[in-house]
Amino acid sequence: MAEKKINPMLKTGLEMGPIVVFFAAYLWLREKTFVIGGTEYEGFIVVTAMFVPLMILSSLALWKLTGKLSKMQIATLVLVVIFGGLSVWLNDDRFFKMKPTMIYLLFGGMLGIGLLRGQSYLKYVMEEMLPLKQEGWMILTRRLMMFFFGLAVLNEAIWRTQTTDTWVYFKTFGLTAAIFVFFMTQGKLFQTYADESK
């Protein structure tokens, strides 16, 4: 099914909204504890419990409005539900903090499998937005695979050695900025391997 066009601001809001709400709710509730059903929960766990259904609802709305979710969006949603659910169920924030590690290992691993088969799976996801020659796709895919593995290691280092506050800021702003900077630094590759036939 072809993707339906929707207002770009609405699309961005549905994609980024849950993360912004998570960050704002965390800042508001981080110092609080809640007793629910006789069990004490820190603010982080309560915010995670709110984030999971919000992520599901925003993904369903995006799917309903566009008629499509990318494989990356589906994989991210599944991992949010699994690791967020485990954090809430076991009252242990470590599972949710591991989620970005699993996401980046999954994405890096998928790209790596494609490379081993002589293919760029990234091309299938981004070809319409970024017309490149095959060689350019292979180079970009190798770089992005290594970048994802690097982000997985960095996430593990930060959540295991830093405070929850530091990790939340890193997850909300650091990871987003890192991905933006990565693509900004690929300008020479985009120019060199641009496919001008498209």
Rank of each mutant, 00 (worst) to 15 (best):
L86V: 00
Y121V: 00
Q119S: 11
I74S: 14
L90K: 13
A75G: 05
K97W: 02
R94Q: 14
S59R: 02
D92Q: 06
V81W: 12
L79V: 01
Q134D: 15
E128T: 10
K99T: 00
L122R: 06
G112D: 08
F107C: 08
F95T: 07
L122F: 04
I56Q: 04
V80W: 11
L54T: 02
M129I: 12
K71V: 06
T101R: 06
T76P: 10
L62C: 10
D93M: 02
L111E: 12
K68S: 05
A61E: 08
M138W: 03
K64W: 14
M55G: 10
S87D: 00
L115M: 10
K133G: 14
G118D: 10
K123A: 14
I113H: 09
M102F: 07
P100K: 07
V125I: 15
G84P: 13
N91K: 06
M102G: 04
V80T: 11
A75C: 12
K71N: 09
L132S: 09
V80R: 00
N91H: 14
K68D: 14
V88Y: 10
L140E: 10
I56N: 02
S120L: 07
Q134W: 14
S87N: 02
Y121Q: 02
E127N: 12
I103P: 00
T101I: 01
V80Y: 09
E127P: 10
Y124L: 09
K64T: 08
T76F: 01
V88H: 04
T101Y: 11
I139P: 00
Y104H: 04
M138G: 01
D93N: 15
I74N: 02
Q134K: 15
E127G: 06
L130I: 15
F107A: 08
S87I: 02
A61T: 08
S87V: 03
M72Q: 14
Q134C: 15
V81R: 07
E128P: 05
K97F: 13
M126P: 03
W63A: 04
K97L: 05
S120T: 03
Y124V: 05
S58K: 08
M138N: 03
S59M: 04
L140K: 06
M129A: 15
S58F: 07
L77Q: 13
G112W: 08
L90G: 03
L130K: 11
M98N: 09
L111I: 06
K68Q: 13
K64R: 14
K99M: 11
I103F: 06
M110H: 08
N91L: 10
K71Y: 14
V78M: 03
L115Q: 10
G118Q: 13
G84V: 07
I74L: 15
P53S: 14
L77W: 11
S120K: 01
M138L: 05
N91Q: 12
S59Q: 11
L77N: 05
I56C: 12
K97M: 09
P100R: 00
L106H: 06
Y121S: 05
G109M: 02
M138S: 02
K133I: 06
G136P: 11
D93Q: 14
V88K: 09
L62E: 01
